[in-house]
Computed example of a mutant assay.
Amino acid sequence: MSKFLVAGVTQIETIVRVDKIPVSYAPITSANESIFTAMGGDAYNESLALEWLGDDVTFMSIVGRNQDLGMINPPDRKITLSTEYIIPQMKETPTEVVLYDKNRKQQIFEDIKDLRENVYDMSMVAPIAEACDMMVLANANFCRPFAKEAAARNKPIAVNIRSYKPEKEIYNTDFLEPAKVLYFSDDTLAEDPYDFIDRISGTYGTEIIILGQGSEGLILFDKTHNLRVHYNTVKTNEVVNTIGAGNALFACFLHYYMETGDSVNAIKNALLFASYKIGYMGTSNGFMTTDQLEQWRNLIWGIKKSEFESNS
């Protein structure tokens, strides 16, 4: 079990299943089991997954002043996130609407409200930062001071950058420079993925980079072990909804990487965790247990004491 401090965005998400993106105009479309609304957000989802896997998680976030914090922990969920450090200080909670179709295409509409103007009370952070094993951060404005806290205490940082845009790289420097682990999605990537990984690692000295490639799988880069390899997706479930799969994959990777230091073992478990997740509606539903992960992993890849030893 590792101790994670997770800081990032909490938002209200509405997920809508459509026949095809782009959506054709119709005055009204009626379809059962096609609209789902719940709490979400990258850091929120990652906190849930880490807690589910047995880690000790302190989640720090900001929401709207009138937000019902009871929505953070719906009664039908098996795990509970502490709301002690979720501060209701914004005018409204950020909101996102996601349209998705059977071909895994997504169209996202987001309204971050006054998120950029808000700051987090860092006086609460110092003792928790000192006690944690890793900080997992979103690249939100209010998370910048967390990166400085981690660097001051020599704590490893993992950052979910999500979609990469060249014009935003300067904005993200505060996160890119100190991060030990970076996660990107290739949704908006215009350059060759291997060239991109080499450039990011060469520029910032990043030890671990995960580049998600949707249905094509991902690329794992591990500087210490001179590793840069593509992994295909695996199938453990029928695809219902891929939203939140990247958050699940990132969290599971961090759980096992912090436990073993073996990035290959961690990414294989993460691929399984994400593949099961996409069989469920909602970004915070459908997590594999550690026992299920072990069973599937042994079934697909066999039992190996160490991935690095077995590949040497």
Results as ranks from 00 to 15, higher is better:
147 A>R: 06
40 G>C: 09
199 R>Q: 02
174 D>I: 06
292 Q>T: 02
157 I>M: 06
130 E>Q: 09
79 I>S: 08
171 Y>R: 03
100 Y>G: 01
153 R>M: 07
119 V>R: 13
243 I>C: 06
259 E>G: 03
181 V>E: 05
310 S>P: 01
177 E>A: 14
212 G>D: 05
285 N>T: 14
253 F>H: 11
224 T>F: 01
241 N>Q: 13
129 A>Y: 11
219 I>W: 00
165 K>C: 01
207 E>T: 10
8 G>Q: 01
7 A>P: 04
94 P>V: 11
5 L>S: 05
151 A>Y: 09
58 T>D: 15
108 I>Y: 10
227 L>A: 03
151 A>S: 13
300 I>W: 01
203 T>A: 03
84 E>C: 09
54 G>N: 06
125 V>Q: 10
245 A>N: 02
166 P>Y: 12
238 E>T: 14
202 G>T: 10
60 M>D: 00
303 I>Q: 12
294 E>L: 02
276 Y>G: 11
27 P>Q: 10
130 E>G: 03
27 P>E: 13
153 R>D: 06
217 G>H: 07
67 Q>T: 15
181 V>P: 06
165 K>D: 07
297 R>D: 08
18 V>T: 05
122 M>S: 06
71 M>D: 10
63 V>F: 01
212 G>R: 02
47 S>T: 07
11 Q>L: 13
143 C>Y: 07
49 A>R: 15
